[in-house]
């Protein structure tokens, strides 16, 4: 065991909190205006702005490995481009 329980960050050891979900946020890439309001409010920092193929503007993209399905992103989205699905 690590001496003195002094440990180092290792993302491979991170619990995949995505399996906490019972609701799943879905981003409507058309409606999303790329304002990134949701990004800093996500408690899991699971949202990145990504440009899909052939799209000029980066849109919200959720990392479902860590998203816990809390729904904060859907709540704060100014254009209601994110909706929660069972």
């Amino acid at each position: 065991m690590e001496e003195g329980a002094i440990i180092q960050h290792d993302i491979k050891k991170a619990p995949k909190t995505g399996n906490w979900r019972y609701m799943k946020p879905e981003v409507d890439k058309e409606k999303c205006i790329g304002c990134a309001t949701c990004v800093p409010f996500c408690p899991e920092a699971a949202i990145e702005m990504k440009r899909g193929q052939g799209q000029k503007k980066a849109k919200a993209d959720i990392d479902y490995e860590y998203c816990k399905g809390c729904g904060v992103c859907a709540e704060v989205c100014p254009v209601k481009a994110i909706f929660m699905k069972k």
Binding site: A14, C42, A46
Partner: peptide, 28 residues
């Protein structure tokens, strides 16, 4: 996982879904 936001505090923590302090920590 958002690289910029997780420079200090990574994902995979077990705060309740919808908790506020991860945003506080990362913002500050």
């Amino acid at each position: 996982m958002n690289k910029e936001l997780t420079k200090n505090l990574a994902s995979g923590h077990s705060a309740c879904a919808g908790c506020a302090f991860p945003t506080i920590v990362r913002t500050i």
